[in-house]
Amino acid sequence: MEKTEKIPLKKILLICSKASIEDVYAALVMGNGAVMEGIETKLFFTFFGLDAITKKTMNKLHTATTGNPGMRMPGGLPFPTMLGGLPGVEAGVSAMMRKQMDALDIPPVDEFLELITAGGGEIYACKLAMDMFKLTKEDLHDEVKAVITVGDLYEMCDGPGTQIVFT
């Protein structure tokens, strides 16, 4: 039988390009989980994902209440799309979601970033998206290590046992 060598995951790069609670937290939970396992971890935020590392927006993320077939009323009833479009509904639902996450000991975004960097994880912002949204490094949370190009990102992907995940 052919002998296959298993290469454990040594390094992971997580790319987050969206600003919804579920997309950002998918990246944060996976990133923090990797740090907890002793895996070298880098998170790269681009496009709307920049909201997650921008001081002004990071702790006020929303989830979409329209165009989201997974959305339910409390109790599990379907959530009418028309209702989701009413003013304030998305903000209210999002606030409720953040509150429920807090109850499960899931930290707010800024604290989550601090937890990741405390364990040696690194946070990066995409230069091109920063230019597009007219953001500067000062707009970003202090835990962001650098604003980098896509070339810089690929340079970080060296070595066996490295994976890139796009959320």
């Binding site: 923090n32 907890m36 396992e37 002793g38 000991d105 930290p107 604290e111 601090e114 937890l115 405390a118 364990g119 040696g120």
Partner: peptide
């Protein structure tokens, strides 16, 4: 047990916890 909880325990912060048990601290 979570790393967050241990980091808020007043015994150590998260960074110190990672330093004391390098690699996979909670495990």
């Amino acid at each position: 047990l979570t790393i967050r909880g241990i980091g808020k325990s007043g015994v150590v912060n998260a960074k110190e916890f990672y330093a004391l048990f390098p690699g996979a601290p909670l495990k």
